[in-house]
């Protein structure tokens, strides 16, 4: 199975050759874009909200708003960043409406699903990871996921989350340290 491209890899995609330069997408262009990005967006929404069902709903809403926004995007990376920005705002709004359903709700079925073909304790590590992520603030989950699962740069994370680029390094550093400690791996002191 081919994996989705990361932000960095997408920046290398030449939009003039892929035919994605139009302002409003036609169906064919949308299909290609959706195939490249939907899994990543869904995973991001599921991890940030902690709710698979909500992630399903927000995924469709994200793509709808993206299509309706009809902003001009310079390249695939810019387009993808817009998509993540929309997803972030929707997740934030949903969280406010729902008044925080327990994050760990999403972990159960996912772990069960992978338990059958578990290799090298992957399900155990995933359980630990999901629990540790649940302890973090939504913004910390979002920035860590974007950085380490999607390969986004500090600038891209700042733009997606609506934060200052200057403070991003410190915030990411703190979130990473917090997660590492929650995962039970103590910092190695100098």
């Amino acid at each position: 199975m081919s994996r989705d491209l990361t932000f960095t890899e997408l920046s290398r995609v030449d939009v003039t050759t892929s035919g994605c330069t139009e302002l409003v997408m036609d169906e064919e262009t949308f299909r290609a874009f959706y195939d490249r990005t939907a899994r990543g967006i869904w995973a991001y929404l599921a991890r940030v909200t902690g709710d698979r069902q909500l992630a399903d709903e927000l995924l469709q809403e994200t793509f709808y708003r993206f299509l309706r926004a009809a902003n001009s995007h310079e390249n695939e990376t810019h387009r993808r960043n817009s998509l993540y920005q929309i997803a972030t705002n929707l997740a934030r709004d949903a969280r406010r409406r729902q008044a925080a359903r327990p994050f760990a709700d999403c972990a159960g079925d996912e772990i069960e699903r992978i338990a059958a073909n578990d290799t090298a304790g992957a399900s155990e590590r995933l359980t630990d990871f999901t629990r540790a992520m649940a302890e973090l603030k939504p913004r910390e989950r979002a920035m860590l996921w974007l950085a380490y699962a999607e390969g986004a740069t500090h600038r891209e994370i700042a733009a997606t989350l609506g934060l200052g680029e200057g403070s991003m390094k410190t915030m990411l550093f703190r979130a990473r340290r917090k997660l590492a400690i929650l995962l039970g791996r103590k910092e190695i002191k100098r």
Binding site: R3, W42, A46, E110, R113, R125, L126, F129, A149
Partner: peptide, 13 residues
């Protein structure tokens, strides 16, 4: 852990 979580989230979507 992120690599594992990403892989499984993508697969289970």
């Amino acid at each position: 852990s992120f690599a594992i979580a990403r892989q499984h989230s993508h697969a289970s979507a």
